[in-house]
Design a protein around this nucleic acid. Structure first.
Lengths: 228, 228
DNA sequence: TAAATGAATTAGTCGCGCCTAAAACGTGGA
DNA sequence: TCCACGTTTTAGGCGCGACTAATTCATTTA
C-alpha cells in the first residue's frame, strides 16, 4: 500500500500548480507573465510566489530566474488531482443536480479545492468512473494518468471533411450557450462545407442538417476527431 | 423583489458569526473566552477579530469591550445562512452520496462556506425542502427562519417516561457511531427504566427492546420530545 | 557592439488573521 | 474599602499573498 504524503496546500498554491500545468502544454517552461495573465495577478506577485514555492516546496516546482517555471513529477501529480476534482465536479453538477453546461465552471473552480478524497471517490463512483468531462476533456485517474486525445482544431478541417466534436477548450458561459444553441457539443458531428484556404470564418453543416458560419473564436476552441 | 446585498465574507468571519450564534442561545452576550474556546483560538486573537468586525462591519456584530459580543439582525441572518448550508449539506451527503451519520460533519464544515446559492437551492430541491437535518436539528429557511423545538434532554426524563429522540447535539464521530450501534438516532423512542434522582447514569429501553445504561455525556446531548 | 525595448525581479507596503507576553480591567471576598 | 484573581485587552510580531514603483536583465535591432 503506497501512502503518498501530501502537505496541505493553500488554495492559492493549488491554483498556481493548476495554471502552470495548463500553460505547460508543449512548452517546457512557463513564463512569469503568462502565469500572471492567466491568474489575473501582477507579474511581480507571481515572481514572489514562484520564489517562495521554489524555496519552500522544491518538490513541487522548478523555477529559474528569468527562465520560467516547470512542474516536478509531484507538482504535476497534484495539478492533475485538482483537475480531476474540477472535471468530476462539473460532470456531477450536470448529471446529479441538473446544472447546464455553461453554469458549472465557476462552481467547480471553487469547490475543487475543498472536497475531501472521500467526496471525490463517491461522486466518481456515482458517475460510473467517467473518463471525460462535459467539455470532452479527459478526466485524470486517481493515479494521475491522463489520456491524450488525437483531436485537432475545427479550424484545421478542410472542405468536405467531417469531424466528431471531442472537446471545447473555452469555459465562457456565453460561448457555451451559443454552442449549445447550435448543437455543437461533444459527440456532435460536423462537416465543413466552405472555407477560405487562408483562414478566417468557415461554413459547417451540423448532423442535424443546419448550416452555420463560424469565426476563429469558435473554430479554434472546438476540437474534433476526423470521421469517415 | 427584495435584493439583499451581502458583502462577500471570508471563511473566518463566517465561522465567527456561526460560533457566536451557537453560543448565544439564552445568553444575551457571548464572552471573548467562550468564543475563543469554541473556535480553538487564543482569546487575544478573538478580541482582535471582534474589534475589527465591530469597526468594519457594524452591521453584523455589536461588541462592547469587556462585555462581550452579540449578533445584529443581519449578522444572525448570515449565521443562519451558513447553518442552513451546513445542515443541507450533511443531509445531502447522506441521502445522495451514501455517507454515514458520523462522516458528514467535517465535510460540511468546510463546504458550507464555498457552495453557491444555486447549489444550495438545488440540493434543497433534491431533498424535498427538508426541515430537519440528520441530527434532528431544524434547517433554517432561506429567509432565515428557524423552528424552535420543544424537546428536552434525555437526562431530564423520569423513570417510566418515554421520549422520541429529536436531535443529538454532538458531532463527535465516535459518539455518533456508538449511538448508531444502540439505535439511538432521531425518531427512535426510548423509555427510562431506572435512574438515580440525583443525576448520573440512567437506564433506558430502546424501541427495539434492548436495555442500556447511559452516562452524562450521552444523556446530555440526546434530546427527546415526550411521548404518551 | 551598443543602444533600445520589453520581460522579470527587487524593494517596499498593505490587509488579513493568527500568535505570545504583558498590562489593564472589574469583580467577589476579606 | 481594598486586594487578589481571573478575564480581557493592548502591544508587538509573523507568515501569507496580493499590490505599485523602481530597477535590472536579456534579447533584439541598428
Amino acid at each position: 500500500m503506497s501512502v503518498t504524503y501530501r502537505k496541505d496546500l493553500s488554495r492559492a498554491v493549488e491554483d498556481y500548480l493548476k495554471a502552470i500545468y495548463e500553460l505547460q502544454r508543449g512548452r517546457q517552461q512557463v513564463s512569469t507573465s503568462a502565469l500572471a495573465e492567466r491568474l489575473g495577478f501582477a507579474s511581480a506577485s507571481v515572481t514572489g510566489m514562484l520564489k517562495k514555492l521554489h524555496a519552500q516546496s522544491p518538490s513541487l516546482v522548478k523555477y529559474q530566474r528569468h527562465r520560467g517555471v516547470t512542474l516536478t513529477q509531484t507538482g504535476e501529480k497534484i495539478a492533475l488531482e485538482i483537475i480531476r476534482h474540477h472535471r468530476l465536479i462539473e460532470l456531477y453538477l450536470i448529471e446529479a443536480l441538473g446544472y447546464s453546461w455553461d453554469e458549472v465552471h465557476e462552481e467547480a473552480d471553487r469547490l475543487e479545492h475543498f472536497i475531501s478524497e472521500s467526496f471525490e471517490d463517491r461522486i466518481a463512483t456515482f458517475l460510473g468512473e467517467p473518463e471525460v468531462d462535459p467539455h470532452g476533456d479527459p478526466i485524470p485517474t486517481k493515479e494521475g494518468y491522463i489520456a491524450v486525445s488525437a483531436s485537432t482544431r475545427l479550424s484545421a478541417l478542410q472542405v468536405g471533411e467531417s469531424g466528431r466534436i471531442t472537446k471545447v477548450l473555452d469555459e465562457d458561459p456565453e460561448l457555451l450557450r451559443y454552442l449549445t444553441k447550435l448543437g455543437l457539443c461533444p459527440q456532435a458531428v460536423v462537416t465543413v462545407t466552405q472555407r477560405d484556404p487562408f483562414g478566417g470564418p468557415i461554413h459547417i453543416q451540423t448532423d442535424a442538417g443546419a448550416t452555420q458560419m463560424l469565426g476563429d473564436r469558435v473554430t479554434d476552441s472546438v476540437y474534433v476527431e476526423l470521421v469517415q
